[in-house]
Computed example of a mutant assay.
Amino acid sequence: MPIRSLSIGLLWMAFLACAAAAPRAEYKIVTASKTGTYIQIGRDLATWVADPADIDLEVLESKGSAENVQRMRFEPGVKLALVQSDVYQAFLDEAKAGNADAGNIIRPLRLIMPLYDEEIYFVVRADSPLNSIHEIKNQKIGVGPLGSGTALTSRTLYQLMFGEPLPPANAQYLTNEEALARLTVDKSIDVAIIVAGQPAKLFTDMKAEARNYIKILKLDEAVPETAQAKKTYFPAVIRASSYSTWLKADVPTLTVKAYLVTYDYGLQSTVGALSRFADSLCANFDKLQANGHPKWKQVRLELPPLSQGWRYYGPMEKRMRNCIARRTAVGAAAAAPPPLPRNCTEQELVLGICRR
């Protein structure tokens, strides 16, 4: 074959290969405010999971979990969301109670995997007479923005602890930054409730002088209000090491679980892209833990049984369970002790088949 014809043939084959290559998927993930932990988790997923899976993942700010559920359901391009467990359950409860809108929103949503526990911060002024979480009854509270997971968490916790709804006159729907300003500057609220996985940028950015203006209320295990709260939420500790510039001692508090959520997609191209995402999430999990937000170190690569009404997304669940099983098998083989030496028989020695 003439060289010119061969060159043309090779170029044509290369062109066909490029033309046949599938374009990178362009997806979005909804997170939370720019000073929260969710947005950093989203960026980690974009860098260490989506990119190796040939997905361009745009990380979007939001008001938080409740808005994320809505946007996951209806906003074009949003294929992933970070959602608090109590928010997800609240939508399921509303649907079960007969709320058609809640059912329409939540029933097609699916879980990818549980992530980590988010700490709940009950922030008051440094000179406040309040010292424990159960003392917030009848206080004016910044509960988070409308549409946020923080707002739902605040109201749910209040209802659990005190057996009555948070009075509307005592609730102000504010962003984290607005709540801290109202708390410390004009003093129009007494408590700011903030939900964020530690270390949260909002608090890590604070200087040593912050301790002169704010403090964090402690969880008191001895009071009945705590027992009521623990029906839905779990005890945890805000570590002084997370905010070493201004926090002097560990603070016991409560947490809520964060989940990675998607939709029950059936379009083959989307199923394929999300399956690649699942493979990449499993394959690159060690990189997430090594290079991502410190909260990744608390995430376990597993798919535990779910509560009634909660469902994993089938195509991703299958890929992840297979990958997790392979990782487990490799880890078990690596950890297996070497076989014990044994004495060979004389006949094995003569035949040269002894294996010590």
Rank of each mutant, 00 (worst) to 15 (best):
D279M: 02
Q289L: 10
T253W: 02
S275V: 05
E302K: 13
N284Y: 15
V256P: 04
K257G: 05
N291W: 10
T253G: 02
F285G: 13
A249Q: 15
R300F: 07
F285C: 12
L254R: 03
Q289Y: 08
D264G: 10
H293K: 11
R300S: 12
V299P: 10
N284I: 10
L267S: 14
Q308R: 14
L306F: 04
A249Y: 08
G272K: 14
S269A: 08
P252R: 04
L306M: 03
T262A: 03
A290F: 12
D279Y: 08
N284S: 09
Q268G: 07
L306C: 01
W246A: 00
L303E: 08
L267C: 07
K295Y: 04
S269P: 02
L247R: 09
T262I: 00
F277S: 07
K287Y: 15
G266F: 05
N284K: 14
Y259M: 13
N284C: 11
A273W: 00
K257E: 06
Y259W: 11
K257T: 13
C282P: 13
L288F: 13
T245D: 13
L306H: 04
A278I: 01
P304D: 01
F285L: 12
L254C: 05
K248W: 13
V299C: 11
L281W: 02
S275D: 01
W296V: 12
N291Q: 12
S307A: 11
Y263F: 15
L281A: 05
W296L: 04
W296C: 02
L288S: 14
S269H: 11
K287F: 04
D250W: 03
W246Y: 07
W246C: 00
R300E: 10
E302F: 05
P305V: 04
Y263V: 14
S307Q: 11
L281T: 06
S275I: 03
T253E: 03
G292Y: 06
T255M: 01
V251N: 00
S307H: 10
C282T: 15
P294A: 06
L281Y: 03
G272M: 00
A290C: 08
L254S: 05
V261Y: 02
Q289S: 14
R276K: 08
K257M: 08
K295A: 15
V271K: 07
V251I: 08
P305I: 03
K297R: 11
A283E: 09
D279G: 02
L254N: 07
L303D: 07
Q289A: 12
T262F: 06
T245R: 13
P252D: 04
G309N: 06
W246T: 09
G266Y: 14
L254Y: 10
G292M: 09
T270F: 02
V251P: 01
V261D: 06
P252T: 05
D250R: 01
E302A: 13
L274R: 01
Q289D: 10
L301H: 15
Q268Y: 08
L260C: 00
G309P: 07
L303R: 10
L247A: 01
L247G: 02
D264P: 05
G309Q: 05
K257I: 12
Q298R: 13
L274C: 01
A283W: 03
C282K: 11
C282M: 10
H293L: 04
Q268S: 11
L301C: 15
P294Y: 01
Q289K: 09
Q289V: 11
F285D: 14
K297G: 09
L260M: 03
A258V: 09
L254F: 07
H293T: 14
R276G: 00
G272S: 11
L274P: 02
D264V: 09
A273T: 05
